[in-house]
């Protein structure tokens, strides 16, 4: 049955569903009655105490810094390669086998190889994460570059737009949805890979802490760190990404 949601239920439904999730979790914790299934309350109080008197922010900061560094590098390099492949047939033919290879390479293999070849360093960690993400950015931006409207390019050519104007005012706005898509999925993918990188070869960050608490079998702490970082990512999404997108999409919002 399809019914139109009132604006009230549109606000309440997500809240209700979140509460339902917490309730099921609490119930499961109660029934299991085990150290490996902590209650939501236990996890929440761990986060609070780790934040007020523990190293939570130190590790969140380390992970966030790696996420941002790898994200920026992957977006810049991936966009450049993707646009080149979308615009030039020979560039596409030349680089496509590399793309197929890297996009199918398991993240774990790239991480281990980077650590072996470069050493257990920050450079190796960020390189490994960026290498995992670059192929996805390339694929998305290649699609974007292929969809550029030739009619607008011709207009720009007749009116002798400068290179900068073509790039900034004609090309970039057309690529913006593709950049947004690559960025969105990128942030989510990258932070998961950063955790693996930290788990395997760093001495701080959320992944390192999870490694530590895994050895102690402390599930409360593992879930605490995981949820704390999810909250950080949610803040980034709602406080930065969405306002930016709304600002860039003003011209789409108004119907004719």
């Amino acid at each position: 049955m399809r019914t139109k949601l009132s604006s009230q239920s549109r606000v309440y439904l997500p809240v209700l569903s979140t509460l339902g999730f917490l309730l099921i979790w609490a119930l499961a914790a109660f029934l299991a009655d085990s150290r490996t299934v902590p209650s939501p309350l236990a996890v929440a109080s761990f986060i609070v105490s780790e934040a007020s008197s523990g190293p939570l922010f130190h590790h969140l900061g380390a992970t966030l810094a790696r996420v941002l560094a790898a994200f920026i590098i992957a977006m810049l390099i991936g966009s450049a390669i993707g646009i080149a492949m979308g615009r030039s047939r020979s560039a596409n033919q030349l680089l496509d086998p590399w793309l197929v290879l890297t996009i199918n390479m398991p993240a774990l293999v790239m991480i281990v190889l980077c650590y072996i070849w470069i050493g257990l360093t920050e450079t190796a960690a960020i390189t490994a994460v960026a290498l995992n993400k670059i192929p996805n950015v390339v694929v998305t931006l290649r699609e974007g570059a292929r969809s550029l409207d030739p009619k607008l390019m011709e207009m720009a050519q007749v009116f002798r737009f400068s290179r900068f104007r073509v790039a900034w005012n004609v090309v970039l706005p057309q690529l913006q949805p593709y950049l947004a898509a690559a960025g969105r999925s990128g942030l989510a993918l990258i932070w998961k890979i950063v955790l693996v990188v930290e788990f395997l070869g760093r001495s701080n960050g959320v992944g390192f802490q999870i490694h530590l608490y895994f050895q102690l079998f402390n599930v409360t702490a593992i879930l605490g760190y995981a949820f704390a970082f999810v909250i950080v990512m949610l803040v980034i999404e709602y406080a930065m990404v969405q306002p930016l997108e709304n600002r860039l999409n003003i011209w789409r919002k108004r119907p004719a």
Partner: peptide, 27 residues
């Protein structure tokens, strides 16, 4: 200097009317 009006208006949809006109002018 040449200028053109194409069959389709070929305006940049993300720029206002005024920006569309002034963008065609040299910097």
């Amino acid at each position: 200097r040449i200028a053109a009006v194409f069959q389709e208006p070929r305006l940049l949809p993300w720029q206002t009317v005024e920006q569309n006109i002034t963008l065609a002018l040299p910097k």
